[in-house]
């Protein structure tokens, strides 16, 4: 059992775990972050498989642009998003509530 096989096994295992977690995590924000991580790990896996063109494209598009799109869309649909803009007085209250909901 050499090191490359162990590396491959670890990579595949973490990709499968991240794939599951990027759909079934509790909060949507976590899902998006896990999906970006999945994209970066996929770029590593494709470098491992000798597809360097695709690895560059995946790191730039799959992780970068898709993550930005998903976060922008999430920002549009999340509840209480107007409260975050308001000044600090109410912010203390809402932030505590937000952390309860997000985590």
């Amino acid at each position: 059992m050499n090191l490359v096989v162990i590396f491959d096994a670890l990579l595949i295992f973490s990709m499968l775990t991240l794939g599951w977690m990027s759909i079934f995590s509790l909060s949507l924000f976590r899902c998006i972050v896990f999906f970006v991580c999945l994209g970066l790990l996929a770029a590593i896996a494709w470098g491992q498989l000798g597809a360097f063109d695709v690895a560059i494209a995946e790191a730039a598009i799959g992780a970068g642009i898709t993550g930005a799109l998903l976060l922008a869309a999430w920002n549009r649909i999340r509840p209480h998003r107007t409260k975050a803009i308001e000044p600090n007085l109410t912010n203390a209250k809402t932030s505590q509530k937000d952390t309860k909901e997000h985590v």
Binding site: I23, F24, C31, F35, A42, V54, L70, A73, I77
Partner: peptide, 28 residues
């Protein structure tokens, strides 16, 4: 199975990553 539409979109993307991985692995 997912309840929220955004989860469904993420799941579609995960499906896409799986298909790409399958194709690239079969190329080698």
């Amino acid at each position: 199975v997912a309840s929220h539409v955004m989860r469904k979109i993420l799941a579609l993307n995960v499906m896409g990553v799986g298909i790409f991985m399958f194709l690239i692995a079969l190329a080698k």
